[in-house]
């Protein structure tokens, strides 16, 4: 029976998993968008898709190596931000939400279309994107970490190490930005864009910078998720964006620490919940099928989004006084 509780270890592993890294970076970017600037980006999954495919195509199809592929991912995210921002950032805030949620789906449908198969692998996605990254691994392959049922090879340690260093560097950059006069301007835009324009600031330019920076974080983050496994287009649907929103709101939208810890809590909670549910299904305590148990996480995330916004808009780490959303 004890082996059924290995999901506790899975949850511990989830705290530092590459997926957690990817979502922490994407949520950090979203916090810059929404929490600090008030931009309603519902296409963060689109930035992940663009970044992921740009990187994967560079790494697998063009074989240009890790760093050029990384640059391609960044360039892809920047272009996507420009494409979304130019028509919408001058308009009322909710137009951005409609356009971004749509654009993210368009990107997903486009990369998984059979016509694009030679480049993107269609609905199968792309594998082996991490080869050039793991080739850079200085940790000898005799090295491994064993912690209970958790077993990390040198490559698994490498991706986590570089991933978390990236998260820390990104957090530092965002921290420097939001406490600078630049950060004051974007917070001003969140509160009232017209007032900021009346003070001689080019609000459009700031919003575009924010959209680009937050999008690039998502585009870089996804790389850590796909390198050790594979890039599957259907992993980046609208539900992915909603996960990122839940993570950001959970930790605190206008915080830097919040999205990162939010991602860890989120994925550990998912692992524990699904562990208990599958245990319940196996032992017959829960009268549901295994297929149904797969839907539970989405239902919980949806419910969490609603309840967080209604009852704890500041999240875990946000200040209560700052919790008031703008109408």
């Amino acid at each position: 029976m004890s082996s059924d509780f290995t999901f506790i270890w899975v949850a511990v592993g989830a705290l530092f998993d590459p997926i957690t890294i990817a979502y922490a970076l994407a949520a950090l970017g979203l916090a810059l968008h929404f929490g600090f600037t008030g931009l309603l980006n519902f296409g963060q999954a689109g930035f992940m898709t663009i970044g992921g495919y740009a990187f994967a195509i560079g790494a697998v199809k063009l074989n240009v190596g890790f760093f050029p592929s990384l640059l391609m991912a960044i360039a892809g995210a920047v272009l996507f931000a420009l494409l979304l921002g130019i028509p919408t950032l001058r308009l009322r805030a909710d137009y951005l939400s409609i356009v971004t949620i749509g654009a993210a789906e368009i990107v997903r449908l486009s990369v998984r279309t059979p016509e694009a198969r030679p480049l993107t692998g269609g609905s199968d996605g792309l594998n082996g994107t991490g080869a050039s990254f793991f080739a850079l691994n200085p940790i000898p392959d005799t090295f491994s970490i064993n912690l209970g049922p958790i077993h990390y090879t040198n490559d698994m340690v490498w991706v986590r190490l570089v991933g978390w260093i990236t998260v820390i560097v990104a957090a530092l950059i965002i921290w420097l930005l939001v406490r600078s006069p630049w950060g004051r301007v974007i917070k001003g835009i969140r509160e009232d864009e017209d007032a900021v324009r009346a003070l001689g600031k080019n609000a459009f330019s700031y919003k575009m910078q924010v959209l680009i920076i937050g999008g690039v974080l998502a585009g870089i983050g996804v790389i850590f998720a796909i390198m050790p496994s594979s890039l599957q287009p259907d992993n980046y649907g609208t539900q992915t964006t909603f996960f990122i929103w839940a993570i950001m709101l959970l930790g605190g939208a206008a915080t830097i620490f919040g999205p990162i810890v939010g991602s860890m809590i989120f994925w550990a909670t998912i692992a524990i919940t699904e562990g208990f549910v599958s245990l319940g299904v196996k032992t017959g305590v829960l009268p549901i099928t295994p297929v149904q148990s797969g839907q539970i996480r989405y239902m919980l995330v949806g419910l969490a989004l609603m309840l967080l916004v209604i009852f704890r808009p500041q999240g875990i780490f946000g200040k209560k006084a700052e919790a008031r959303f703008n109408g």
């Binding site: 420097l176 930005l177 600078s180 006069p181 630049w182 004051r184 301007v185 910078q209």
Partner: peptide, 16 residues
Amino acid sequence: KLGATNQRGEGLLHAL
């Protein structure tokens, strides 16, 4: 402070 003009720190690179 937001009212002041020509602030260097309002540029992205200087902010860092």
